[in-house]
């Protein structure tokens, strides 16, 4: 059962962070959907509602997304549906339902580094940074690789550029966690291939991305890159699929992702 002892709504981040650090079981609240499923007894729950962290805004070449922004806002945001071929809205499209996405937050989704995350996979294929209250601003990839430290995710920065991107996934049923998800993007000649729900957290297939960036994008090269991605990344087994199946899917979806980005590029040029 979900229990908490106290709930506070601090007026500034410093105070929020102070309370968070005070006790081990003090906890930041996002939309509570995930927290609610746990049985951990929360000491002081910290509600960030008063900190105006729900926004998607564009400035200085970046799109800033506040931690308390809901996934539904990502999904319906007019510009986000345009940028990067709408990869961010697409990535959250399948998560449970509209009411659910109206409640759950970007901050929690990114901070929690869920292995199954659809959003992280898509963000990782873009030029994304996160801003932590204590840890400061860093690349998303660095954040994902950093050991867990209690902090507050304040916002996500996505560099506004001409990246083309695609997001693909395979689910056993429409509102399940993904068996695997893939995001592929291309900026100028540089490709990024990301695979998530392996089922561990999303990672960039560095070598496959590099190889693809160097080549001429022949069918063989594309298939080779897809195969390389499947080989360089590790896959695990859980109730949704075995590692072997994930590996095979990775290859198929990466290939399709690359093709989709190429098509997007062509239709743009």
């Amino acid at each position: 059962m979900f229990t908490l002892v106290d709930l506070v709504q601090p007026d500034n981040l410093a105070e929020a962070y102070q309370i968070l650090s005070d006790k081990r079981n003090n906890t930041i609240l996002g939309g509570c959907a995930f927290l609610k499923m746990g049985s951990k007894r929360i000491g002081t729950a910290i509600d960030l509602t008063n900190l105006n962290l729900s926004y998607i805004r564009e400035q200085a070449g970046f799109i800033e997304i506040g931690a308390m922004t809901s996934l539904r806002e990502i999904e319906t945001h007019t510009q986000l549906r345009e940028y990067f071929n709408g990869v961010l809205p697409k990535s959250v499209h399948n998560i449970i339902g509209v009411q659910f996405r109206n409640g759950v937050t970007v901050g929690a989704s990114v901070y929690s580094k869920y292995g199954f995350s659809d959003l992280i996979t898509a963000l990782l294929a873009l030029d994304t940074e996160v801003e932590l209250y204590k840890g400061g601003r860093m690349l998303l990839v660095d954040f994902l690789n950093k050991p867990h430290e209690k902090d507050i995710l304040v916002k996500v920065w996505v560099k506004k550029n001409n990246r083309k991107a695609a997001y693909l996934n395979l689910r056993k049923s429409a509102s399940d966690y993904a068996v695997i998800n893939v995001a592929v993007s291309k900026l100028d000649d540089q490709w990024t291939i990301v695979v998530g729900a392996r089922p561990s957290k999303a990672a960039i297939a560095v070598r496959a991305s590099a190889a693809l960036s160097k080549g001429k994008l022949s069918v063989e090269e594309i298939e080779g890159a897809a195969q390389r991605a499947a080989e360089e990344l590790s896959f695990g087994t859980n109730a949704r699929g075995t590692s072997e199946y994930r590996k095979a899917l990775c290859q198929v979806l990466v290939k399709r992702g690359i093709m989709e980005v190429l098509h997007a590029n062509q239709s743009d040029n």
Partner: peptide, 13 residues
């Protein structure tokens, strides 16, 4: 005026 899951929203909020 927005659809939400009342089972997952803390009443205090």
């Amino acid at each position: 005026d927005k659809s939400v899951l009342s089972c997952s929203i803390l009443s205090l909020r």
